[in-house]
Amino acid sequence: MTLTRRTIPGFAALFSLPLAWVLLLMVVPYAIMISVGFWTRQFPLFYPDFQFGNYAQILADPQYTTVILRTLKIAACVTVCALLLGYPLAYFLVFTVRSQKLRNLLYMSVIVPLWVSYLLRAYTWKIILGTDGALNSLLVSTGLVSAPLDIFLYNQTAMVVTLVYIFVPFMVMPLFTVLDNIPRRLIEASEDLGVGPFMTFWKVIFPLSLGGVIAGATMTFCLSFGDFVAPVLVGGPDGTMVANLLQTQFGAALNWPLGSALATLVLALVLILLQLSSRLDRAGRVDLA
């Protein structure tokens, strides 16, 4: 005990800088945001207050609930698509590719886009899906369609496609790790016990990879949920997401109290989700050793 007590000053000195960072740039801003959520607005000014009017307005106005539900829907679609794409890819990398070199190369090619500007990656899809874009050029040149189509861009599908492309590495990374950590002996044991590859996947590999599925899905969902670039670049008139709404409240609409309340709601939603995911993960965790 005395040892611990004596080490505390040194400990504090060492960690005071990161502590100050967290306090000043995270705790204080959150506190401000949450409290501003209870203020009142009398255009063009805001007055300190403690009332739930902003929350009531968000819940009562279908405009807000529609956008929140749409955001949840799009984030869910992105998560499911990323899982459906990412799982086979991770499985292929871990179990099918024999050469370690090739595996690392392919894995890196999944990760490398993360080093490219996020805006640039989102913008790429505007170029691919646009009326004069790569997809239309291909369709026209192959004669599949006679004139360029404008159905690819500016809709929710385009947003899902773009977000899946941007966030799929966050799905592949944890999946690759968990699959790579499954002892090959367990797969051999399953086959040894008369179970074919298909059922071996469902009974052994998939259950043991659930941790990675949960981690990947959580990251993909939360990142998509808070995205505001894809709606602006490739989303159409019905593509507004929660983050865009927030931006408007703090910008054009000049209603910080409402924006703060909305931000607090979004934060709460994400925290609940993270909590659920970590509980799920803990319940299913098994010791592979």
Partner: peptide, 13 residues
Amino acid sequence: VNTVFQDYALFPH
């Protein structure tokens, strides 16, 4: 045939 593996290879889940 069935095998008793060196590290037992029991299914942990």
